[in-house]
């Protein structure tokens, strides 16, 4: 296990399709874009192999989907550090959809519950990720609950 908890650590260099992330994130902290699904486990991989691979990895794939009247994000799939918090993802989406920092944004897992903002993405991925990715719905008003 890595102890890489430092949020100020320099971002690792983005992989495919990084150019289009430039206006989304600030100071280079945007998640890495993954247009090419090369990070996903190979189709033939067994579930246990792929989850093993993922838990050893420092980054996970997330898929961001709008709910309610929230605008669609052109790029939906991102790779983020496991240690990033829900609040960080929420701030990132707000910047991307050009929402005011003061406006609220709710993030949901399983279209059912809103993890607390200080939860790390890695834990949520481990419990609620499937097919090598974690689906998060974002919404401007409380959607579920």
């Amino acid at each position: 296990m890595s102890d890489k908890n430092d949020d100020d650590a320099p971002p690792s260099s983005p992989t495919a399709g990084s150019a289009s992330t430039e206006n989304a994130g600030t100071d280079g902290k945007s998640p890495t874009s993954v247009d090419s699904p090369s990070v996903s486990p190979a189709p033939g991989a067994t579930a246990s192999t792929s989850s093993k691979l993922k838990s050893n990895s420092l980054k996970v794939d997330i898929l961001l989907k709008p709910a309610g009247d929230a605008p669609i994000m052109k790029k939906k799939k991102w790779t983020v550090d496991r240690t990033k918090k829900i609040s960080w993802v929420s701030d990132f989406i707000k910047k991307y959809i050009k929402s005011e920092a003061s406006e609220s944004l709710f993030l949901y897992v399983n279209q059912a519950f809103a993890p607390s903002p200080d939860t790390d993405i890695g834990s949520i991925f481990d419990c609620f990720g499937s097919d090598g990715k974690l689906v998060l719905h974002y919404c401007r008003t409380q959607a579920w609950g």
Binding site: V109, N110, A112, F113, A114, P115, S116, C127, F128, Q142, G145
Partner: peptide, 22 residues
């Protein structure tokens, strides 16, 4: 309250795929 209910929902998602809370 909303934090509490959300954690209860998360717990049920793990225990019963959310079927009981739903």
């Amino acid at each position: 309250q909303s934090h509490f209910i959300s954690v209860v929902k998360e717990a049920d998602a793990l225990k019963h795929r959310g079927q009981v809370i739903n």
